[in-house]
């Protein structure tokens, strides 16, 4: 009973925290105030200050995480309403997604190899641009460390959500397709939370990129490891 109440309290406080920080972000609009950053940091600080283990937090937190599955399914909705533009530019979108996947894997591999990182770290980092559930499965299949992969997946997501729009401005990336494919392939669902601000077209292409990267990545990354390591 007590455990149930505790889980409930964790869920309610995380949701309220998110709503409050989201309101603040919508009001001020500064990327440093993205709720994934502010809400997550607040939770971490609370856990550290009160010496609460992550496992205790997850007794409630796991229920929030479980909603990610239906939320990914919900992405079918913008994908359906925007189907005409997707069909129209199918080649641009498909080629760019495969390109992004290769660029992401090759660049993180090269950077880590050059800096002399351990092989288990390299394997752990390879699936970082895929959506969390797939990244975990891929990491497991290539002998990486799945929970650490999740952390790196989140860092890749943060990077896109936080710096993506600045990069779009600097490098003049200004079409819904290029923004959607770049963000969805490099920063998966966390990137999509930022892409949402550009509108439904960006979001639908972003979710398509996220979904297809996951599917292609599940095949390409193990193949890459098999051929190169």
């Amino acid at each position: 009973m007590l455990q149930l109440l505790q889980a409930l309290a964790i869920i309610v406080s995380t949701v309220l925290l998110f709503i409050a920080f989201n309101k603040l972000y919508l009001k001020v609009g500064h990327p440093l105030l993205l709720p994934i950053l502010t809400a997550t940091c607040t939770v971490i600080i609370v856990l550290l200050v009160f010496n609460i283990p992550y496992e205790t937090y997850m007794e409630g937190g796991q229920w929030i995480s479980k909603m990610l599955g239906p939320a990914v399914v919900a992405l079918a909705f913008p994908l359906y309403t925007q189907r005409e533009i997707i069909f129209k530019y199918k080649y641009s979108i498909l080629i760019s997604i495969v390109f992004a996947l290769c660029a992401g894997v090759a660049s993180v591999f090269t950077l880590l190899k050059l800096s002399g990182a351990e092989e288990s770290f390299i394997l752990t980092a390879l699936p970082k641009s895929l959506t969390t559930p797939v990244a975990m499965q891929v990491s497991d299949s290539i002998a990486g460390v799945p929970p650490l992969t999740v952390v790196l997946v989140m860092i890749a997501g943060f990077t896109g959500a936080f710096l993506g729009s600045t990069l779009f401005k600097i490098f003049n990336i200004n079409s819904a397709i290029s923004r959607g494919v770049a963000m969805g392939s490099a920063s998966h669902g966390v990137g999509l939370t930022k892409l949402k601000e550009y509108g439904e077209e960006d979001l639908s292409i972003g979710s398509l990129a996220m979904g297809l990267s996951a599917v292609f990545g599940a095949f390409i990354i193990p193949l890459f490891v098999f051929l190169l390591l």
Partner: peptide, 20 residues
């Protein structure tokens, strides 16, 4: 490790955006 992931993500966004 984290720096490599950040740089690789920035690189991927830029080149993919441009190529696309």
């Amino acid at each position: 490790l984290m720096l490599a992931v950040i740089l690789s993500t920035l690189f991927t966004i830029i080149v993919t955006g441009k190529v696309s």
